[in-house]
């Protein structure tokens, strides 16, 4: 029974990992630029949720969409002001630019909000369901279900719509896309916006059951990176599957080895993965 409980906990958390990781896979797959500030985007969304609740007394039905819209705008601005100018520059510029952004976001948050851990009341989305002995918390269930629905939605957007085809065309070949009349810049700005919006939703959902502090971002950046590596670059279904796997691995290792070492297992898994399959578990060479 404890096994089922661990699996279900892991899947619900993993779904949220999958959501923000699919944002990263979109950004990365589209333009081959890594976003080192991805976890800090999630952190920002978590603070949006926290301040919406404490100042405006509104629930997730309000702050999750707000975080999504806010982060969408932020992602577009980051693309237009920073990424667009460095993405065809030297490798060093591409890598350090978003790393600098991560520092600015994290330490501005530290400055503005202090290092204290804050959290939303656990009763905000209250209730625990008992399903044949497996306990499901309403907050995690809501987060997991929303995350899976949105990840699936993102996949459908990319593969089934005209807009998605245009975005994929730009990611495939910028110049060729431009030749057939697709303007690359708006598409890539859109990819950054959507990728950031995914972190917005994910951050709003995670804040329901996870503490908020200025330095939560780093571990999310790494988690997203591990997930994208595991799932294959640019693949949304891969990110979903990998996110779920990582959620379950984390929940098992936290149970057996203690919460302090759960990150060790995930990062260790990743380093081991680099050894055996540098192209990712489901990725092609």
């Amino acid at each position: 029974m404890i096994l089922l409980q661990l699996v279900s906990d892991g899947l619900q958390l993993g779904a949220v990992y999958a959501l923000f990781s699919s944002g990263l896979t979109l950004i990365w797959g589209m333009m081959n630029v890594m976003n080192f500030a991805h976890g800090q985007f999630v952190m920002l969304a978590m603070y949006v949720a926290f301040f919406c609740f404490t100042l405006l007394k509104v629930g997730p039905a309000f702050f999750v969409p707000l975080a999504a819209v806010g982060l969408f705008g932020f992602g577009v601005v980051v693309y237009l002001l920073l990424v667009r100018h460095v993405m065809r520059g030297p490798m060093l510029a591409q890598i350090i630019s978003t790393f600098g952004l991560a520092l600015v976001l994290q330490y501005s948050a530290l400055w503005a909000f202090s290092a204290n851990f804050v959290s939303l009341p656990t009763t905000l989305v209250g209730g625990v369901y008992d399903l044949g002995g497996v306990r499901l918390s309403a907050a995690r269930l809501l987060a997991g279900a929303t995350a899976i629905a949105l990840t699936a939605g993102m996949h459908l957007l990319l593969t089934r719509t005209d807009l998605g085809s245009r975005m994929l065309a730009v990611s495939e070949d910028r110049v060729a896309a431009a030749l057939v009349g697709i303007r690359p810049d708006p598409m890539q700005a859109l990819a950054w916006g959507l990728g950031a919006a995914a972190t917005g939703v994910a951050g709003g959902l995670i804040a329901l059951f996870f503490y908020v502090s200025p330095d939560v971002g780093n571990s999310f950046t790494l988690l997203a990176f591990v997930t994208v590596c595991l799932g294959g670059f640019g693949s949304v279904p891969g990110a979903l599957l990998a996110g779920l796997v990582i959620g379950v691995v984390e929940s098992f290792s936290a149970y057996w080895l203690g919460p302090a070492t759960k990150d060790v297992v995930v990062y260790g898994l990743f380093v081991a993965l680099l050894w055996v399959r540098p192209q990712g578990m489901f990725g092609r060479a």
Partner: peptide
């Protein structure tokens, strides 16, 4: 502890990259 130095660091990094 204030982290102000690292905000400046981050800005410098972005300016160099850009």
């Amino acid at each position: 502890g204030t982290g102000a130095a690292y905000v400046a660091y981050g800005l410098i990094i972005m300016l160099i990259a850009r």
